[in-house]
Amino acid sequence: MSALFSLKGKVALITGATNGIGLGMAKGLASADIDQIILTYRSEKPLEEAIKVLQEVNPNVKFASIQVDLSAADEDATVKKIFEESYAKSSTGNIDILINNAGISARYALESFPQEEFDQVLKVNLSIPVKLTKAIGTKMLETKTEGKIVFTASLMSFQGGLNTTAYAITKGGINQFMKGLSNEWSSKGIRVNAIAPGYIQTKLTDSMDADRKATVLPRIPIGRWGNIDDFMGPIVFLTSDASKYVTGETLLVDGGWMAR
Rank of each mutant, 00 (worst) to 15 (best):
L7A: 06
K8F: 03
G9I: 01
K10A: 12
A12K: 11
A12W: 03
I14H: 03
T15G: 02
T15E: 06
G16S: 14
G16W: 08
A17T: 12
T18K: 05
T18Q: 02
N19A: 12
N19R: 14
G20I: 13
I21H: 06
I21Y: 11
G22C: 10
G22P: 08
G22Q: 08
G24M: 11
G24Q: 04
M25T: 10
M25L: 07
A26Q: 09
G28M: 02
G28Y: 07
A30Y: 12
S31F: 06
A32W: 01
A32L: 07
D33G: 12
D33S: 15
I34M: 13
D35Y: 05
D35G: 06
I37S: 00
I37V: 11
I37N: 01
I38Q: 05
L39E: 03
S43T: 11
K45C: 00
K45F: 08
P46S: 11
E48Y: 13
K52D: 02
K52E: 09
V53E: 13
L54I: 11
L54D: 07
Q55N: 14
Q55E: 01
E56M: 07
E56P: 14
V57C: 05
P59Y: 00
P59L: 04
N60I: 13
V61E: 00
K62S: 13
K62C: 02
F63M: 07
F63G: 00
A64L: 08
A64T: 09
Q67Y: 09
V68M: 02
V68E: 00
L70M: 11
L70E: 04
S71Q: 10
S71V: 09
S71I: 14
A72I: 04
A72K: 10
A73G: 06
D74C: 04
E75Q: 11
D76M: 14
T78Q: 03
K80D: 12
K80W: 01
K80R: 15
I82D: 09
I82R: 12
F83L: 14
S86P: 10
S86M: 06
S86Y: 14
Y87W: 11
